[in-house]
Amino acid sequence: MNRPEAIAIGCSMGGFDALKILLAALDPRLPQVVLVCCHTAGNVEAMCELLASHSTLPVVEARERGPASGNTVHVAPGGYHLLLEHDRHFALSVDERVCFSRPSIDVLFESAADVYHAALIGVVLTGANRDGADGLVQIRSRGGIAVIQTPTSAKAAAMPQAALDTAGTDYCLPLEEIAPLLNRLCLT
């Protein structure tokens, strides 16, 4: 089995609170690249600062052409899709919305799957649409690992439910148990 190189997390409605809990419980030694796509209309810079005060890892807005560095949480900027190039640098796009969203979780997941192949964990958290479901299919088809928040434990169940129905999953867990799982998968 491949040791994961990256974790890609998608969330929407209720996502900010979920991220606070998840990022607070990640092991600060995680060497992986952590990618986050959260459908927030607001200011991503401010969101990064707020998340950073809870997170064990540094939280930054992903920078166009910047490197996807490990041991860091990179958040997709507002209004742009976030993608990865094969040299593990970020690219942005203003292509049309996917699932009414830009940034879109599907776009991030698919692009990350192209780069990390099986060494990728895709995580779908709370949300009220179906973004992330198709992206999770792509991650799984390349041998990556899927983790979905139990819909009944999510503030909005639609997104994790759509991911479960469309992609299936390797793990389906309540929010509090996701960070411990990621720590285990990434450090052992």
């Binding site: 190039e85 292509d95 692009s111 192209d114």
Partner: peptide
């Protein structure tokens, strides 16, 4: 062209 977006299109 940057490859990731081109592939997507």
């Amino acid at each position: 062209y940057a490859r990731a977006s081109l592939m997507r299109r």
